[in-house]
Design a protein around this nucleic acid. Structure first.
Length: 287
DNA sequence: ATCAGCACCTGTTGGC
DNA sequence: TGCCAACAGGTGCTGA
């Protein structure tokens, strides 16, 4: 599932690939991919990509008109660029997708493509999403307000974290996943940060000691930065804008390792469900 | 206001 | 081997 490091990797790749291109056509193959709160999506036609960035887990495509196309990949969404005459994108098994730049496709060009921007130069940005959970939303105005995402996990400071946690009774793991408080942290990195900080996922957010807060902040930033350096984690089927998987899944310490020995102390990693999400931790290391 | 629980989806997995 | 139910999960919405 794309979280902050994966979205950051995709955004950087897209910025290099599509900045300056002008939209000639928009293809919508699955209507609900366009968020119900979106401005009319056909307003994209004629607009030009100014830059691509990230807010929380949203890929933010800034346009020269001042509008913004926000894309949320949810679990299985992917954004890939195909240039005229090249087939940059590959499918889940690594096979190249057909080159669709020569002529108009009559139907969705690959099985899971839901949405695409077709550029005047013949290239296209395709949004594919097997489970149809991902959304695109054209925003005219204040992006931060529209998306309701809290402070970015990489911009979080000690004082902010302390204030956010104060008196909160929710579990720290659940808290980390609340995008309205902190933006960008998903299930994988919440598990990993808590393991590295040696904080038990069920601990009440407001009950962390000062030392635990310090460790959590340090380890959250460290794991996110390391994952960006590895171009993200390809646990399920994530690929970046060039269709390449990440490498960080090899460095995960608890996520997906239920029953396997803790890398610190050899105690079997435990899996529980918190807030209806798989939660992995070492019962010996994390307090 | 806050929070738990379900709906949204379909490819993959595990059990029989 | 083949079939099918259960499962995975981020967020929006609903109802408590």
């Amino acid at each position: 599932m794309p979280e902050l490091p994966e979205v950051e990797t995709i955004a950087r790749g897209l910025d290099a690939a599509i900045r300056g291109r002008t939209i000639a056509r928009v293809d919508v193959w699955w209507g609900r991919t366009v968020d119900s709160r979106s401005e009319p999506i056909e307003r994209l036609v004629g607009d030009t990509i100014a830059s691509v960035g990230r807010v929380g887990k949203f890929v933010i495509i800034g346009l020269t008109s001042g509008r913004t196309l926000a894309v949320h990949l949810r679990m299985t969404g992917r954004l890939t660029v195909a240039d005229r005459g090249t087939a940059a994108a590959v499918d889940r098994k690594g096979r190249p997708l057909p080159d669709l730049s020569k002529g108009r496709p009559l139907r969705e060009p690959s099985k899971h493509e839901r949405f695409a921007l077709v550029f005047r130069d013949g290239g296209r940005l395709a949004f594919s999403d097997a489970r149809k959970f991902g959304r695109v939303r054209l925003i005219d105005g204040d992006v931060a307000r529209a998306l309701d995402v809290g402070i970015d996990a990489l911009a979080l400071g000690a004082a902010s974290l302390r204030a956010l946690l104060a008196r909160r009774t929710t579990r720290i793991k659940t808290f980390l996943l609340d995008q309205r408080r902190i933006g960008g942290v998903g299930n994988i990195y919440a598990n990993e940060a808590l393991f590295r900080a040696r904080v038990h996922p069920k601990r009440r957010a407001g009950k962390l000691t000062a030392l635990q807060r310090t460790r959590l902040l340090r380890e959250l930033r460290a794991v996110l930065r390391s994952a960006i350096a590895s171009r993200g984690s390809s646990v399920d089927d994530y690929v970046d804008a060039e269709g390449m998987p990440g490498e960080f899944q090899k460095l995960l310490k608890v996520y997906g390792r239920a029953g396997l020995p803790c890398r610190r102390c050899r105690t079997p990693i435990k899996r529980i469900v918190l807030g209806q999400r798989g939660t992995f931790y070492c019962p010996a290391c994390q307090r």
